[in-house]
Amino acid sequence: MSGRIGVRKTYKLYVDGDFPRSESGRTYPALDHRGEVIARVAAATRKDLRGAVRAARRAQPSWAARTGYNRGQIIYRIAEMVEDRAAVFAAQVRMAGVAAAKARREVFRSIDRLVWYAGWADKYQQVIGNLNPVAGPFFNISVPEPTGVVGVIAPEAPALLGLVSRLAPVIVSGNTAVVLASERWPAPSVVLAEAMATADLPGGVVNILTGPRSGMAPYLASHLDVNGIDAYGADEDMLAGLEEAAAAGVKRVVGPPEGRIAWMDDRTAQSPYAIAAFTEIKTVWHPKGL
């Protein structure tokens, strides 16, 4: 036996393209399904959250201004990075007690979902928008635009596929995101952040915070520089709190459907309407004439 000691990873936040610790210096233990500590994970605070929102806001105009073609390439590149580390992701997913074969399927489905959404970047506008046949001599067109900065309360489980399924439709249109990662199973989201950081995704487009969510989530929903909330990861109580907090800024909260979500089912777990949910329809009129 060589007696080599393994090198353990520090699980940090992902903000503005960097991997900082929490400003508070706090961490919390991430456990595996047997209750054993896998790692100490950064416990983000409201101050970290404010920084993440600032980074997301800064990054948003230029991310939205990129061509759909380019955003599609970058999201496809994230898929490439996840594929490359599929074994690492599967190992992280397994920590939640998921059997090996099932963990691999979740990773592969996550990759495929990223590829699926990547392809929408330069197409969803054609499906969601249209020319309007108004009764007069006007050119009149409705197009979807990204709403801005979106807070994503990631599903607690499946930590990887749930996050990918909700995050990809948010950013593909040109939104930037502040994600509150699965509190119970944070490790896959940290590895996903590492894949994103090496996939040409500009800093600030996706920001991922780990840590206790009950304090951060309503704050994220009430933050006036956040335009929308994806609350698929919220239970009924948290959802009500988020909706109440969101009212001050008239921002929409997209809650989970009632009942179990079939995350592996492509027909229901992925949709261009999930992209549309965080876009604004802008209608432009112009007269026609000589």
Binding site: N140, I281, W285
Partner: peptide, 27 residues
């Protein structure tokens, strides 16, 4: 950042044309 933009016209409405706001103008 507005749901309806009227260019070289204003206050035009039509049943075929979507109307509604961004931000605190609603959803």
């Amino acid at each position: 950042r507005a749901g309806v933009v009227w260019a070289n016209t204003y206050n035009k409405f039509d049943p075929a044309s979507p109307f509604g706001g961004y931000r605190e103008s609603g959803f």
